[in-house]
Design a protein around this nucleic acid. Sequence first.
DNA 1: CAGCATACGGAGCTAACATTCCGTTTGTCA
DNA 2: TGACAAACGGAATGTTAGCTCCGTATGCTG
Lengths: 180, 180
Amino acid sequence: MSSGRELFARDGPEAQMDEIAARAGVGIGTVYRHFPTKEALLTAMVRDRFQEFGEIATLAEETVDARDVLETVMRRSAEAVEGDVGFQLAMMGSNQLEWEGIEEEKAVLAAVVTRIIRRAVEAGAVRDDFTFEDFGMVMCGITSTMYYKPGSADWRRHLAIVVDGLCPPGRVEQDRPTRS
Amino acid sequence: MSSGRELFARDGPEAQMDEIAARAGVGIGTVYRHFPTKEALLTAMVRDRFQEFGEIATLAEETVDARDVLETVMRRSAEAVEGDVGFQLAMMGSNQLEWEGIEEEKAVLAAVVTRIIRRAVEAGAVRDDFTFEDFGMVMCGITSTMYYKPGSADWRRHLAIVVDGLCPPGRVEQDRPTRS
DNA sequence: CAGCATACGGAGCTAACATTCCGTTTGTCA
DNA sequence: TGACAAACGGAATGTTAGCTCCGTATGCTG
């Protein structure tokens, strides 16, 4: 239901079933024939999006240098979420046990990102105690900037700070971008 | 209304007026005699808490070494919010224009923190493009970890990563704490 | 104590939404 | 074309929660 996605993107979980149905040009009954509850509809959309994350990470893993993959994945994932309030909330909530039914997609993502982190650590670009769980944690933080400062590009600065914090201790950083 | 604060701490803005009144041992009417709307009640509580932030920062400014003040303020502010869901949401939302009526308290906080940042930059402990707005942004991120992983201490790790990211470029970091 | 004012309590009003249910339409098969 | 099935639409329902309003209690003044 792609019209559901549009509204979910604009309003988040607040999006109303009536409006979703109207936007899709169908009656409410029809929506409920496809998804038993509102939550089922939201879960379906979140699952789709999580799959996207997996694809983003996979693509980056195959094409980007080990030292830069992690930052690339973080940046591209964030960009994928930009302007999609519903997805932002879902991403933040995905750390919690809030979303049931996306376990599989999340496992795929975890596998890819874990590999990417390992490569980055071996390349000396990332501190060696960084984990997939940490990845989710900092992504959640960066997403919160997007959510609470909609339309601003401040999250890129937040990302830059976090990326700097991920360097291994003792490493002299260079070429750090300045404030935009 | 301190009983309101307890419920707000547990349930956030979801806290219900009936329950707040019952907890306070008064009728709903009485609550509405003190606060015209639910939002007014929430704002009053958020304002109190923001004042606390100002006090935390002021105390730290007076007693902590320039190189460590900023981290101390961040840590103590986060600790003040631990276990208080309502306050966590308020802190995250305070970056947005969501909360009207806390301008004064926020201005006080901004003044103190801006001074603290300047001192830290001069001491060479913090990158020189860091601003009060950035402070709010990263605090929002750290708070989001608290909110979405309630009861865990992961936010301390998030804080550590961010603090590392705030070092001036080229500085060799030392004594970085490892994963807890 | 009578009269007045101030503050209280909480039943009930209202609006917002998710969800259900049934009359109607559309499609299929003989 | 007629009979049956499958899918549809949206009015009606149920529930939740903020808020209002009026009858009552408390306290003060003369």
